[in-house]
Structure formats: C-alpha cells, structure tokens
C-alpha cells in the first residue's frame, strides 16, 4: 500500500477538518475491514487516513419508544445483539448478525457498512482501469458479471451496493445524520445512496468532506425481516437480499415496503404489489415476490437473480409475518 499519514482526531469536527473536498486524498477509517483491503490493492491511495476510533459521539445505541438511534461507530456485533433492536427491528439484527463472521462483526461499524465501496472484482483489481477509476468502460457490462446488477437498466456501472444493512434500514424508514462543512443534516436513507459512474462519485451522496454520525430508526411497530440467498452459510456475501416491512391489522398487511439488496448499484426499492390489504400467505408472498422482480433488466449472467429475488421477497415477507419457514426442513 501507499504510505500515508495517520490521524486520530477526538471529535467529529476535527475529523471533518482533515477531509478534503475531493475524493482520494483522505479516507475515513472505522473498523478497517474495507479500507485496508482497498489500500493493499492500491485501489485506495490516500495520503491521509483519519481514524474514527477515538472520535467522541459516534458510539452508543439510544433506544426509547419513539426511535432508536445508533451511532455510526457502533459495531455490527453490538447491533445484532442489542435487545431493543432485536425487539423492534429483528430484520436489522438478523442482517447485522449475518455479515461475515464473528471477527468482521466485531470490527465493522454501521457507518462503515453503509459507506463501504462495492465488491466488483474489476473495481478491486489494481490492473483494471474501470469507469470508477477513471477508465473508459465498465468491464462487467460485457464481461463476467454474475455477481452484478439484475436491475442494470440505464446504468453505466453495473455494480451492486454491498450493504445488507441498507435495504433493511430503508424499509424501516431510517434516516442518517450527516455532518459536514454545511453543518448537520438528516437524510432519508432511501435517498442516501447513488450509482457512481466515475472517480468523483461513490456509492453514497456524501461529499468527500462529510461523514455519517448516526442512523435513527423510528419505532412504529412495523413487522420487518431480511432474507439473504447465499452460496454458503459461513462467511459469504449474499447473491440477493430482500428486506421488508409492513403494518399489520386484523391479520392483513399494509404499507408494505420491499427493498432489494445486491441487485442494483443502490438498494432497490421494489413496488409492493399484490399484497396490500391481504394476509401474508405463501401465495400472496409469492405474488409480491414476482411483482418485485418485474422490471429487472439483468446482465448476460445475472438472469438467475430474478428467480432469487422472487424467492427472497417471498421468504422475507413470511418471516416478517411470523409464518412457518417452509424452506427449513
């Protein structure tokens, strides 16, 4: 990796002051599970690394009956184990508890998870100069793209957003607190992500001199769940993820939100059709799944994701509704 200067600020303001107006000069270091890799492969070559480990105000989970606020520096393991989160947001606890393995969950933070760079193997290969690194083309578009977007329409870069917490948080109407030179700002998580197309853009709307300080989730009594289809059970990224939330009354559901992960450059909010005002059954859930996958425009190798989307949505709805998990023998 390229040499750099290491900073250990103790406040958010100090940390922000160390950032630059352009990407690439300074990087934030939270748990280190992403940045280290990027540096090692020379994909990230900052001259300044700003550690958030000593910054006050990024920790803690504050829960009351209106909302739960999670500091951006909170580790994934803590999120997965927290009583209030397990109670109100089982989908979030489950997604956090499924990230990597125990070590990753002890190191990785909420902020890092939301702001991590994509996992595209062309992007992460030092010798491949793709769009995001200033090159002329997206190699995945015509190349090996089985782990890439299934909703590829109109995208010049066909990565998938790798965060499994983001879809759940969006389904829960979470907001993220962003701090920067313009001060503090609350952004709906649904608007926090973007599809990058070049080296001046990343996977979120953050400017290079802004950072996430916390995420707040309203407590509304929504049923919620997350389901991932993975290649193996230990230590893997999902092929496809579905996060859902809904209100329930007299056994019927409403305000159904379906957010798909690992199918598009940003978490993909899907239209929830065929289920509003009805009970969640295998049939209605399956219909919702099919509807969610409609409109997918897969790449040459991501056609298989369409079926997985249908299944993931179906299963997430059934889990959220407390129904029998028919896929477990």
């Amino acid at each position: 990796m390229k040499n750099f200067t290491y900073y250990r600020p103790t406040s958010v303001d100090q940390a922000l002051a160390l950032l630059d107006t352009r990407w690439g000069t300074a990087e934030l270091l939270a748990g280190g599970t992403d940045l280290h890799d990027l540096q090692k492969e020379y994909v990230a070559q900052p001259s300044r690394v700003v550690s958030l480990g000593g910054v006050n105000g990024l920790g803690g989970i504050a829960a009351n009956d209106r909302e739960v606020r999670i500091g951006a520096g909170v580790k994934l393991a803590e999120i997965a184990a927290h009583a209030a989160i397990r109670k109100h947001f089982p989908g979030l606890a489950s997604a956090a508890g499924d990230v990597g393995g125990p070590q990753i969950r002890n190191m990785g933070t909420l902020g890092g998870n939301l702001c991590q760079r994509n996992r595209c193997w062309y992007f992460r290969d030092e010798h491949t100069n793709c769009l995001l690194k200033g090159g002329q083309r997206c190699f995945a578009l015509e190349g090996e793209n089985r782990y890439h977007a299934a909703f590829a329409q109109g995208h010049r870069c066909v990565i998938v957003n790798p965060s499994t917490l983001a879809p759940v948080l969006i389904a829960l109407d979470a907001t993220v607190e962003v701090q920067g030179p313009r001060g503090r700002n609350n952004v709906e998580l649904a608007k926090f992500f973007r599809a990058p197309t070049g080296p001046t853009e990343r996977e979120t709307i953050l400017a290079p001199n802004e950072m996430v300080t916390s995420v707040t989730i309203p407590v509304r009594g929504l049923a919620n769940a997350s389901y991932e289809v993975r290649q193996k059970q230990s230590y893997d990224w999902p092929l496809v993820q579905a996060a859902v939330s809904f209100t329930r009354q007299d056994g019927k559901v409403n305000a159904v939100k379906i957010v798909l992960g690992h199918v598009a450059p940003t978490p993909q909010v899907a239209e929830a059709r065929g289920i509003a005002g009805r009970a969640v059954t295998e049939d209605t859930a399956a219909a919702a799944g099919r509807a969610a996958a409609e409109g997918a425009k897969p790449l040459s190798q991501t056609g298989y994701k369409i079926r997985l989307i249908e299944v993931a949505v179906k299963r997430a709805l059934l889990i959220a509704a407390g129904q029998k998990r028919y896929w477990e023998a």
Binding site: H36, G101, Q103
Partner: peptide, 27 residues
C-alpha cells in the same frame, strides 16, 4: 490472506475476536 477472509490471524483485542491482519498497528 491479509484480507480478513480466513481467520488465521485472529486475536482477541479488548475482549473481542478480530482479524489482526486488518487492524492497523496504530488502531
């Protein structure tokens, strides 16, 4: 592996198991 994928480097740091290959000495 130097990239947190294999656990050969696992140590306990401040009571938590971590992949030491991805923890900067400074951290």
């Amino acid at each position: 592996c130097s990239s947190g994928d294999c656990g050969a480097c696992v140590v306990v740091m401040n009571g938590q198991v971590v992949n030491s290959c991805m923890v900067l000495a400074a951290q």
